[in-house]
Design a protein around this nucleic acid. Structure first.
Length: 114
DNA sequence: CTAATGACGCTAC
DNA sequence: CGTAGCGCCATTA
């Protein structure tokens, strides 16, 4: 399996309203050695069926903002549409929206914080 | 085979 | 807080 395909498989597993860091995706991919760089490179050419929008940089910020400001804005809009809340500093609230492959895809717990 | 590059990550200044 | 440098692994020239 191509490394890119492995990345897509992981990203597709991310539920709406949740986000993952490039480093985490690279960590989740099993059987294929990868670094956060390849994840981003793969996302750049990701198919439409891949929710690349749910992949953010470490800390929840959007590293693409300096490369593709337009794309970053669209990504942010999409995430907010899915229920993801951005902090005033322009970063995703990783404390609540960082997805865990553990099966903690329970979105209900997000509402109790309100 | 070697060199350069990249939606990254972290430490250092 | 912003910038700079090094490490990361794989793809491409």
């Amino acid at each position: 399996m191509d490394p890119a395909e492995a990345v897509y498989a992981v990203v597709r597993t991310v539920p709406a309203g949740k986000v993952v860091t490039y480093g985490q995706v690279a960590e989740f991919v099993e059987g294929v050695s990868m670094s956060a760089r390849e994840v981003g490179a793969a996302m750049n050419v990701s198919p439409r069926d891949v929710p690349w929008q749910r992949v953010v940089g470490a800390g929840g910020h959007l590293p693409i903002g300096k490369r593709n400001p337009t794309l970053a804005t669209e990504q942010r809009r999409r995430l907010e549409m899915e229920g993801v809340v951005f902090l005033p500093n322009g970063c995703v609230d990783m404390a609540r929206f960082q997805w865990r492959p553990d099966g903690s895809d329970e979105v209900g717990s997000l509402f109790e914080s309100a």
